[in-house]
Design a protein around this nucleic acid. Structure first.
Length: 638
DNA sequence: GAGGTCTGTCATCGG
DNA sequence: CACCGATGACAGACC
């Protein structure tokens, strides 16, 4: 029983992967949106790239909220942060190491049937032993902790019910092995009945299709010696091998923690055709061999892209079920399947290798070069990589004006706090004071209650000189002017005091018109100086943000190129398998003279309704070409 | 001395 | 209308 369960589950995984290969679209948008968001941990050390302007990035790493409305470009940083936190909140990150492990996150209603029966997952990811161990541990832990995480493929499949004909046919199967499987199926049906019918459907599909073929009356031509069991089984077994072979390929791109939380119920057929997913319990046998003459009974359907549906019916015939089919990864995007659908199925096996080469070759063509934006970011002395120079005071970020020799600057920088903060850098220090509310430009003394506007300037200067007597600050021009007026207020105070206090100051002091103008200019210039510093800081931050965005997009491009490479490989392999399969099938077919059909002259073609017909290659080609020509002629006439 | 960078300042605009 | 913040532009200091 355990072995059967493992076998069925593994088969379902392969089956699901196969479905994705033949056109069942897998929706991973949920996590792809945040996939390429910069989940990069911000380096907060002194050598950080954002040492000059760490506001957004450090704030992002610390909290991820309070985005200033003037910096909307930061939103996606916070989004990535939240996603990362959500993933971390799930517990062990080993739950997301591989695509296979992603199956484990499905929450399945606990019916008590499988609790306490850990699944053997050793064969699910044979190419990733470590991850397999992680998966096993995860599953076992989940069982021990009472969580209902389990490998739910079979149970999700339980909603699906194979068609009655399929069950009957499976019961009529006379093969001993299949009888044994039938017994196992009956036994297990008590616990997970319907899931096993789906699995049974998978395992016995070759026999079903054989029955269809043998029992089909849609063979108008006297094809004799029709014995198709080996081709179907071989084809399916080849696909099994193919799937297991490509699982490793599919997992190559799984280093990123994407949770493909896919469900068998969430799957949908690529073309989005509602008819593809409609219940087809009463549907006629899908896979049917027809002669060339009767293959065009439904041109509207045959004109549709047929590969997904046809192979879909070949493997599991799950289109007959209410349940949609699981989606595995986004490897085969719609564009690729459109190419497949555009191809005549009979020619699928002979896909132009140049096209495949082109698909892979294009990946080497850089389509997104790092454009020269004209911004000499790297050459800037204030670039992230450049170490801070003596004139670049780190305290600037906390409100000090670089190169500004005002007392405000001195108050901040002379205490040595900034230097200490720089030497012992900690993001917390920045997050305490630096937020993008544009208040960082305001000197600390403004917010400090210890500084009174009535405090004499001499006392302030004494404090400054007492803090650092070795480096007497050179007063600015405005500072000197204010001092020359003999006022008891410094330029710093004049600039940062509230406007009411400033007006009161002007009224209280018996100042001339020129003196009032001077004080107003000092205040205006001081405020504008801080505003200019903030403006430049924001500009630099914007540039940095755009630079990060460019890097993120470049990473996204690389990931997409890798995905396209996998898709091209999968498509090539599928084409090759189908060609092999077609040749095998044709070798078992006989024409009216009892001769086997030559693969050079005949090919299999699947229509939209799931029918598989044998068509002459030349006639199909000529028909397509002539049809296209006549259509063009008609268009010209119109 | 030329060129780049940083900073302060002015002018202007919009809230 | 005054005030304030933001920002482009310019000039000077500095390297």
């Amino acid at each position: 029983m355990q072995h059967m369960k493992k076998y069925f589950t593994e088969g379902l995984i392969q089956f699901t992967i196969l479905l994705s290969l033949i056109g069942v679209r897998v929706d991973v948008d949920t996590y792809l949106n945040g996939y390429y968001s910069p989940l990069i941990e911000t380096d907060g050390g002194p050598s950080s790239a954002f040492i000059q302007t760490p506001f957004h990035h450090y704030r992002d790493t610390a909290a991820g909220h309070q985005v200033h409305p003037k910096c909307p470009e930061l939103d996606y940083y916070f989004t990535s942060r939240r996603l990362l936190n959500e993933v971390r909140a799930l517990g062990s990150p080993a739950r997301f190491p591989t695509r296979v492990s992603a199956w484990l996150v499905h929450l399945v209603p606990d019916d008590g049937s499988d609790v306490g029966e850990p699944h053997d997952l050793s064969e699910y990811a044979s190419n990733d032993e470590v991850n397999t161990e992680n998966i096993r541990d995860e599953v076992e832990n989940d069982h021990r902790t009472g969580e209902d995480f389990e490998l739910s493929l079979s149970q999700e499949h339980s909603i699906s019910r194979p068609c009655c004909a399929a069950e009957e046919l499976s019961k009529e199967d006379t093969l001993p092995n299949q009888e044994k499987e039938e017994d196992d199926v009956k036994y297990e049906r008590g616990q997970e009945e319907t899931s096993l019918t789906a699995v049974n459907q998978l395992t016995q599909i070759s026999a079903l299709e054989q029955e269809y073929l043998l029992g089909s009356s849609a063979l108008p031509t006297p094809i004799s010696g029709l014995e198709l069991t080996p081709p179907w089984q071989d084809f399916l077994s080849e696909f099994d091998d193919f799937d297991s072979q490509h699982i490793s390929d599919l997992e190559l791109d799984l280093t990123n923690p994407i949770s493909y939380n896919v469900s068998l119920q969430d799957a949908m057929v690529t073309r989005g055709d509602s008819t593809s997913c409609r219940p087809t319990s009463n549907r006629a046998p899908i896979f049917r061999l027809e002669s060339t003459n009767s293959s065009h009974s439904d041109p509207s359907q045959s004109s549709e892209g047929t590969l997904p549906l046809t192979l879909f019916s070949l493997t599991g015939n799950c289109s007959r079920n209410e349940t949609s089919v699981s989606q595995v990864g986004g490897y085969l995007d719609e564009a690729v399947f459109e190419q497949i659908n555009m191809l005549d199925l009979c020619n699928l096996g002979t896909i132009d290798p140049r096209m495949l080469d082109c698909m892979q070759g294009d990946m080497d063509t850089p389509w997104l070069e790092d454009s020269d934006s004209g911004l000499s970011l790297e050459s800037s002395s204030r670039s992230p990589a450049s170490p801070p120079t003596s004139s670049d005071s780190f305290c600037e970020d906390e409100g000090g004006a670089t190169g500004y020799n005002s007392e405000a600057e001195s108050l901040i920088s002379k205490g040595g706090a900034c230097a200490a903060a720089y030497r012992h850098w900690s993001p917390v220090n920045l997050n305490d004071n630096i937020w993008h509310d544009h208040t960082y430009s305001v000197p600390q003394a403004q917010n400090s209650t210890s500084v009174s506007w009535d405090q004499p300037i001499n006392s302030i200067k004494q404090e400054i000189m007492s803090e650092d007597e070795d480096e007497p600050e050179e007063m600015s021009r405005d500072e000197r002017r204010v001092q020359e007026l003999g006022l008891s207020f410094s330029a710093f105070q004049i600039v940062n005091m509230p406007v009411d206090d400033f007006l009161e100051l002007l009224d209280r002091q018996s100042l001339s018109g020129s003196e009032v103008t001077l004080l107003r200019d000092v205040r205006r210039r001081g405020k504008n100086k801080l505003a200019a510093q903030n403006c430049r800081k924001r500009k630099l931050d914007a540039i940095m943000g755009l630079q990060d965005e460019v890097e993120g997009l470049a990473a996204q491009r690389e990931a997409l190129l890798r995905q396209r490479a996998h898709t091209a490989k999968a498509l090539s392999a599928a084409a090759e398998r189908f060609e092999t399969f077609s040749r095998t099938v044709l070798s078992h077919l006989r024409d009216e003279y009892g001769q086997p059909l030559s693969p050079e002259h005949y090919a299999l073609q699947c229509s939209a309704n799931g029918r598989v017909v044998v068509q002459p290659r030349t006639s199909a080609t000529s028909r397509t070409m002539t049809g296209g020509k006549t259509k063009r002629k008609k268009d010209k006439k119109h």
